[in-house]
């Protein structure tokens, strides 16, 4: 269990994490957000790598910079460290001096991934390195795992294997946080999502909960429609895109909106369509940006 209360981490004038409060329960949580949203900074603050300017992070009830908290946590950064010239065994020995691992599980995962034992880790491809360190993270005995961009550079087959391993790991009552800028990568894995934007929690809940306030329509009008036509009807348009004569637009869910648009704009056809999984995240970002723009204006 990881709790973050009012955490702020600034680099100069830039607040990478801004007064953020969130709790990560046992199970798999997807931490999503665009590049620079503050995901890695948040994970580093929880792992005790960065010192927060304000607020605190607790791991199993202990402050993140304490020995107890660090013993209960393993953080896999997006670009992990391998000692110079070390092969898989030497890398494992190095990490074993700093953290506790299940050696059998590690060996079995390395075997599953088919990683070469005698080559220096630094000569591995990006994907191979990722597999090795994911294997290391999943064999850590800590109750809490933070995996930053865990699937970056991996092919779909390996991603599926790793997802299976992560789910198995989570079934042992572990708290696993997997960060990604691509919500699609966390499909069929995370029980819960936390969406970050500009260092703050933009949204959190299950995949269905995220984006529930938006509705996406597909329509063809008798005239060349634009965003303003919808806005003039009193709806807040989150996105508007036209491909040929077909327009796709997203608005905040309002009861009776479909009938109202039909009545006022008389489209050739109009229907509500489902969101693509990764579209939800983009919409959250766009909505947040629009809101900011409105506030600034």
């Amino acid at each position: 269990m990881i709790e973050v209360n009012g955490l702020t981490k600034a680099f100069g004038n830039l607040k990478a994490v801004d007064n953020l409060s969130v709790a990560f329960e046992p199970g798999v949580t997807g931490l999503v957000g665009h590049n620079g949203a503050g995901k890695s900074t948040l994970l580093r603050c929880i792992a005790g790598v960065f010192e927060p300017n304000e607020g605190e992070a607790k791991v199993n009830g202990n402050l993140s910079n304490t020995k107890q908290a660090k013993s209960d946590l393993f953080f896999l950064p997006d670009d992990p460290f391998a000692p110079m010239g070390a092969n898989i065994r030497e890398t494992f020995n190095f990490y074993s001096g700093l953290f506790e691992f299940d050696k059998e599980k590690f060996n079995s995962l390395v075997k599953t991934f088919g990683l070469p034992n005698n080559k220096a880790v630094r000569t591995f491809s990006k994907g191979m390195k990722r597999q090795l360190f994911v294997a290391l993270a999943l064999s850590a005995k800590a109750d809490n795992l933070l995996l930053d961009e865990a699937f970056d550079g991996l092919d779909p087959m390996v991603v599926d294997v790793i997802k299976g391993e992560i789910i198995e790991c989570a079934s042992q009552n572990k708290t696993i946080v997997v960060s990604s800028h691509n919500i699609l990568a966390l499909e069929r894995l995370a029980d819960r999502f936390v969406v970050l934007n500009k260092g703050q929690v933009a949204k959190q809940g299950s995949q269905e909960d995220i984006g529930v306030e938006f509705v996406k329509y597909q329509a063809a009008f008798k005239f060349k429609a634009n965003e303003q036509n919808i806005a003039d009807l009193g709806y807040e348009v989150v996105s508007f895109r036209s491909v040929g004569s077909v327009s796709h637009f997203v608005i905040y869910e309002t009861p009776g909106a479909l009938e109202h648009i039909k009545e006022k704009l008389d489209p050739l056809f109009i229907e509500q369509v489902p969101f693509e999984p990764d579209e939800v995240l983009t919409l959250e970002m766009m909505a947040a940006k629009k809101k900011e723009g409105g506030e600034n204006a």
């Binding site: 580093r44 792992a47 005790g48 790598v49 020995k67 660090k70 013993s71 946590l73 393993f74 953080f75 950064p77 670009d79 992990p80 460290f81 990490y95 700093l98 953290f99």
Partner: peptide, 19 residues
């Protein structure tokens, strides 16, 4: 001196004085 090394060393349970 390396961001990668810091990510590893600083999260160790007996960081930082003992290391």
């Amino acid at each position: 001196t390396s961001k990668k090394a810091v990510d590893t060393f600083y999260q160790a349970a007996y960081a930082d004085k003992t290391i």
